[in-house]
Design a protein around this nucleic acid. Sequence first.
DNA 1: CTTGCCCACTCGTCTATACGAGTATGCGTG
DNA 2: CACGCATACTCGTATAGACGAGTGGGCAAG
Lengths: 261, 261
Amino acid sequence: MASLPSILGGLDPTSDRAVFRQIADQLREAIDRGRFKEGEKLPSEAELVEHYGVSRMTVRNSFSILQGEGLVHAEHGRGVFVRPRPPVRRLASDRFARRHREQGKSAFIVEADAAGSHPTVDSLEVKEEKAGQDISTRLGSVRRVLARRRRYLLDGRPVEFATSYLPLDIARGTQIAEPNPGPGGIYARLEELGHQLDHFEEEIRARMPSPSEVKTLQLASGVPVIHLIRTAFDTSGRAVEVCDTVMAADAYVLSYQLPAT
Amino acid sequence: MASLPSILGGLDPTSDRAVFRQIADQLREAIDRGRFKEGEKLPSEAELVEHYGVSRMTVRNSFSILQGEGLVHAEHGRGVFVRPRPPVRRLASDRFARRHREQGKSAFIVEADAAGSHPTVDSLEVKEEKAGQDISTRLGSVRRVLARRRRYLLDGRPVEFATSYLPLDIARGTQIAEPNPGPGGIYARLEELGHQLDHFEEEIRARMPSPSEVKTLQLASGVPVIHLIRTAFDTSGRAVEVCDTVMAADAYVLSYQLPAT
DNA sequence: CTTGCCCACTCGTCTATACGAGTATGCGTG
DNA sequence: CACGCATACTCGTATAGACGAGTGGGCAAG
């Protein structure tokens, strides 16, 4: 690494911009310009204290800004690093097309394999439970539902946590209530049970994660989540499934095709 | 407000959870339980210092956690407040349907009026410029483009900043290059120019805002942005427009309909 | 009564210090 | 050579204090 003064400038005492913001600005710009590359270690707190002639808390304050922006992450005992942009998983709007369902594996496994990643599914939980207000409304005022919870990982990194809710009168006693729903997933089973799927409705929000989501998805600070709620409708117009998904936003790009008609 | 000890508990010195995290946990839980309501003022730093018997920086540290989660926001000289969840704007996937285009006003104005909000559009800029790498690729290797920039506000609050890029050979000299593109917007003009629209492609990402986005959208800390890139294709398969939109995530829910075929 | 100022309270910024805990390296011992 | 420990360096947590600046209410002067 080049010497600090050659990368970072000095402070402007006449500026009304707070010192810790000025430091954050300089570090951010250096990162943007590629003076610090992805995964690279930034100068230590002590070095910056020395360089700028400020106290350590001021430097830490600067780092905390960059952390909130998702630009860097600190590792206890090692240093502060430029956060690498992880490879993203693209979700195409045709990902539930029937033709993708004919094969054996789940959509997640197939896609990940194709992308050369190592996919895993864990924390599988299948149980009957009371539907929350929102789920109940979306499914048409059902009281109890079958909930299928699972977490998806790519190369060991959790990227998505999803829960499917199905009305008991549809799912109870079927393979949908089993941990392994069989080839083509629960959508294939639903169609076999006579619920020909007609269309899906997806609602998308983005927000900062709750503490429990941070834990489940092992999220770095400064990484939002995408909250997707999908409702599946059969040809009779009935909502047959609601899938509530929370995704690490830095791992996904969602893609949709809209007709212009 | 009830007395502090009745709302907030004490600290657990035996816990290995940091004190400032314990305080943040208690405040978060109190907010979730509704002990502090939306827009309500939290106890001041001094009060919490007194209640917990810790130093002021520790309390501020707790607040900064909650701020990062988007739960609270501080106002200089006034206090720390529970951040109200603003009314959200729903974007339906049929928002570009031709029938919505026949009327005079823009989609944004019509929707906002219907929702009882007061819509504004400002920072209008229309100019020719060099296309960036990404835009150029999406439009099919064009070098220069017409860029239309505008910011949308609801009841005075900025919620969205959008830039439309169009190939010069299509847009130059037409009403599309005027500040006011006329009734139905640029999509109506494109169709009049013989570019019958076929479909749109939308890419969605979520991330923390850059400092300039924080400024433009007046974002509170802990609010991510939704980054949407829409490409419009005409019936010949040509990309005729790319619209790059950055939205305040707390102001939007995106909604899509997908066929199951 | 109105105006304007003062003051108390609030958060914002910054310093200086202390100790704890995780990481990595190198050196000395076996 | 291999192992283990000491040590230096890193960030994490917490204290105590100081001054600045925005807000709002009360009080005094006009």
